[in-house]
Write a protein that binds this DNA or RNA. Structure first.
Lengths: 111, 111
DNA sequence: AACCGTTATACTTAATTAAGTATAACGAAA
DNA sequence: TTTCGTTATACTTAATTAAGTATAACGGTT
């Protein structure tokens, strides 16, 4: 038996969560949404749709896009994306700690 | 923007969570799975499949069933179901508190 | 001008999950 | 023995979600 959970921010649908957080981390490192998607075996199409949906729900841009050029272009985090990720990262980490602590408290002896 | 989350126990698939907890609470009050299901606009079929799945994954019975008789029969919580629900209820309540506190800490000023 | 790896977007298909339908056994009570 | 409201279970259908396919614009570099 194990504990499972999903936590997300919602605004007329999922607006941010662990998946997007991870994806954007990779975009930041790689400078490209398509590279980031590829790294986790997600199609670019899927990643693009995800980011677009989130931006609509959040009401601000997560990525600054550049199209064309010798490297084809790229995507980079906006300042607002960084702020959100910073908050969400801390929130997520502390949430995990809290839930695991409670799980141990109540389900220590296997059920 | 609001916080959303789902928390569940897993053992080769979802083995217990908020939905089953609520359903079993009603079974306890009504003495019938079909009545409990009806109360939350869930088909009996659906409720039955749910409970059966949970029992398989948990490895013990949640309901003691009685078939036939003037009232048709009924379902009643097993002792193990009561113990699990007691633990889960407290765990769930404290988890909610903890998560809401963390959400306020990080996302107080609307994003 | 041709190439290349991006972003952008519509459209289709598959997979998974949820919901519904249909039957039947049970057993006390009338 | 008929009725009634349960539990039990297989089978089908619908709905939702996820995944895939196809096409095009962009703009440095060669």
């Amino acid at each position: 038996m194990k504990l499972c959970y999903k936590i997300w921010l919602d605004n007329n649908g999922k607006a941010f969560g662990e998946g997007p957080y991870d994806l954007l981390k990779r975009v930041d490192r790689l400078g490209s949404l398509s590279k980031a998607a590829r790294e986790i075996n997600m199609s670019y199409n899927q990643a693009w749709k995800l980011i677009n949906m989130l931006e609509k729900r959040l009401g601000f841009k997560l990525l600054q896009r550049e199209v064309g050029g010798s490297q084809g272009g790229g995507s980079f985090l906006t300042e607002e994306a960084r702020e959100l990720m910073d908050k969400y990262g801390k929130f997520s980490r502390e949430s995990e700690e809290a839930l695991n602590k409670l799980y141990q408290k109540y389900f220590l002896n296997d059920i």
